[in-house]
């Protein structure tokens, strides 16, 4: 009885993981995958395919920027970790932050929650700096310290992409041209 149960469990496991891990690009397997994956997810055994920088590595260099307005109307800026300058130790113990910030710009639901979190956390838990403002006669005003709670926030993704001419291979590091694309993610206002 026990041996039979193991035989069947092992066979089902092998079939399940083999089907679940077929690459998404194999259209013929999509029906099988759609059938197997939800079942495995209930069991806590789902995995999907394993791209690991495939089919092509995606350069996701950049930072998230939050433009906030405090209760007095003063503007401020919150910036996510700049991984380019972070130490190896920071990249190790804050690895989850790296995953999170890479995915956040592409997940609207999560971005809403994150913007709400920043509204409630700036400046105590999430440091932000006051930004330069402009006066009624267009004169530059010095930044003022932010006073909580924040009134609203606009979240942007500043993404650095490599400028490569068509037909050109990967340029040397010191000759690489980077261009920054700014993408608006979400705007949130504080709940009254």
């Amino acid at each position: 009885m026990k041996k039979n149960a193991i035989r069947i469990l092992a066979l089902l496991f092998c079939l399940g993981v083999a089907i679940d891990a077929i690459p998404e690009s194999y259209a013929w397997a999509s029906k099988w995958k759609a059938w197997v994956h939800p079942g495995l997810r209930i069991l806590g055994l789902s995995q999907g395919d394993w791209p690991l920088f495939a089919p092509n590595p995606v350069l996701n260099n950049g930072v998230l920027i939050g433009e906030v307005t405090d209760q007095s109307g003063n503007p401020g800026t919150w910036t996510s970790i700049d991984w380019q300058t972070a130490s190896v130790w920071t990249k190790f113990h804050r690895f989850r932050h790296m995953n999170y910030l890479q995915r956040l710009p592409y997940n609207h639901l999560a971005a809403n929650d994150f913007a709400d979190y920043l509204l409630a956390s700036i400046p105590e838990r999430e440091p932000a700096v006051g930004s330069v403002a402009w006066g009624p006669e267009n004169q530059m005003l010095d930044p003022k310290p932010l006073v909580p709670p924040m009134r609203d926030i606009k979240l942007y993704h500043y993404r650095n992409t490599m400028a490569i001419e068509e037909g050109q291979g990967l340029p040397a590091l010191d000759q690489t041209q980077w261009s920054t694309q700014i993408r608006f993610i979400v705007r949130r206002e504080a709940n009254p």
């Binding site: 077929i22 690459p23 690009s25 394993w50 791209p51 690991l52 495939a54 089919p55 092509n56 590595p57």
Partner: peptide
């Protein structure tokens, strides 16, 4: 799975 995914990529 990862080999099959990668083999399709141009890079």
């Amino acid at each position: 799975s990862t080999a099959l995914c990668k083999i399709e990529g141009e890079t």
